[in-house]
Design a binder for these strands. Structure first.
Lengths: 210, 210
DNA sequence: TCGCTTCCTGACCGTATGGTCAGCTTTGAG
DNA sequence: CTCAAAGCTGACCATACGGTCAGGAAGCGA
C-alpha cells in the first residue's frame, strides 16, 4: 500500500500466496457463504495445505474480512466515475458502466459483499457507518445540485442511488438466475452491452436527464 | 392443499408446530445463511426440542427447501398484479407496489431466496427452469405487446424485468444497509411510500409510459 | 376401555470443522 | 558461513453439528 516493497524472494512468496488464498477464498465464500465455506476447501482450491492458510490468516474470520475489504474498495473506487462529471448523463452514465463492469469482472466479490450486508454486516458495520455514509451523503448532495440546476427531474437522491446499486449489483448477485433465463448460457459481450444500455437509458430517461 | 383438513387436535398441533418451525427457520436462514444456520438455533427459536424438528422435517435440507418454496410462491403470486392491466402504468405500477410490499413484509424470506439464487440455486434449479422461465416469457411477451401498441418505449422486456426485480428486492436484501444509511432506523411508513413512488416514477418515466 | 397411531424427547453417535503445535526447511542479513 | 527469522506442514485436538433411536405420552376410532 505505502512502501514500494523490496521484492525479495520472501516478499514475492508472501504476496503470491496471499493472493492465491484471497482469490480462492473469494470464490468459496461466494459459492457457499461464510458459514458453508470451509478452510479445507479454500486450501485445496489455492493448492496449499490447510495449516498454511492459518499461517497467513490466523482465523477464518480474518480471511473473510480481508476478502470483504478488498471488494469494498473496488466498489468505492467506481465512485470516481461520478466525479468531475458536468451532469447526470455523464456522471450517472459512467457510474452505471463502472458498476456493471464490476458485476461482470468481480461477480464473486459482489456476491460476498451482498451476503455480508444481507446478514447484517457483522464484520464491516463500521465501514457502513463511516466511509459509506460519507460517500452517500456526498453523492446525494451532488445529485441534489444537478436537480437544483435543472439538469434532471426532482427525484429523491437516496432512492436513486439505491436504484443504481440494485440494478447493477443484480447482474452479479442474480447472475445464475439471469443465466438460467438466458438458456443456461452466460451473457455474451453483446448482451452485456445491451444490458448496460437498457439500464442507462431507462434510468437516465427516468430522471429526466435525456 | 387439497382436502379441507378436519381440524382434529392432531392436525391443529401439526399445523401449529410446522408453522412455528418454518417461521423460525426463515429467520435463522435469513440471518446466517444455509451453512451458518443450525438446527439447534432454529429449535430454540421455535421453542421446541431439536429432535422434534427432525420429526417434522427429517433433514436440514428438507426444512430449507420448504422455506424457499414458500417464499417462491409468494413471489410468483405478486405476478397477479400484472394481469388484466390495460397498460404498463397500471400493470408495472401494481407489480412494483406488490413486490415492494413483499420486501417489507417478507424481508427474511426474500433474503433466503436471494441467498439461494446467489449460491447457484442448488435446491430450486428446476423451478427456475420451468415455472420461472414460463412466467418470464409470458410477461416479456406482454410487455412487448405494450410496446407494439405504442403504450411505452421500445425497451428490452427482459432487462426491464430484471430491473423491476432488482430495485424492489433491494429494499429487503440490502435493508440493513438502507437502515444504516437512514440513521440506524428502519424506514417509516412515509419513507416506504416515498420509496415506492420513487421507483415507480423513475421506471415508468424511464420506459416512456408516463 | 382397548389398542393403534401419532407425537414427543433426552441421550447418544459419527463426523467434519476451525484451529494448534512441534519441528522441519528455506531465506538472507551480517 | 552462521544463525535467527520467516515459511511450511503432518498430525493432532476439542468442539459443534446433523442426525438417530428407544421408549414414553397423548390422541382417537371402534
Amino acid at each position: 500500500m505505502s512502501e514500494p516493497e523490496r521484492l525479495s524472494k520472501r516478499n514475492a512468496i508472501r504476496l503470491e500466496n496471499e493472493q492465491r488464498i484471497l482469490s480462492a477464498a473469494e470464490k468459496v465464500f461466494a459459492e457457499a457463504g461464510f458459514g458453508g465455506a470451509t478452510m479445507q476447501l479454500i486450501a485445496d482450491m489455492a493448492g496449499l495445505p490447510k495449516a498454511n492458510l492459518h499461517y497467513y490468516f490466523p482465523t477464518k474470520e480474518d480471511l473473510y474480512r480481508e476478502v470483504v475489504r478488498k471488494i469494498f474498495n473496488i466498489w468505492l473506487h467506481a465512485a470516481d466515475s461520478f466525479d468531475n462529471a458536468p451532469g447526470p448523463v455523464e456522471g450517472i452514465g459512467a457510474y452505471i458502466d463502472a458498476k456493471m463492469e464490476i458485476s461482470r469482472r468481480h461477480a464473486d466479490g459482489s456476491k460476498v459483499w451482498a451476503s455480508e450486508v444481507m446478514h447484517g454486516a457483522p464484520v464491516i458495520q463500521d465501514y457502513l457507518e463511516t466511509t459509506l455514509r460519507d460517500w452517500t451523503a456526498g453523492r446525494a448532495a451532488l445529485i441534489q445540485r444537478w436537480i437544483d440546476e435543472g439538469k434532471m427531474a426532482p427525484v429523491d437522491p437516496r432512492h436513486l442511488l439505491y436504484m443504481l446499486w440494485a440494478t447493477t449489483q443484480h447482474y452479479a448477485d442474480f447472475g445464475h438466475q439471469i443465466e438460467t433465463l438466458n438458456g443456461g448460457k452466460p451473457l455474451s459481450d453483446k448482451q452485456w452491452k445491451a444490458a448496460k444500455e437498457s439500464v442507462k437509458s431507462i434510468i437516465l430517461r427516468g430522471i429526466g436527464a435525456l
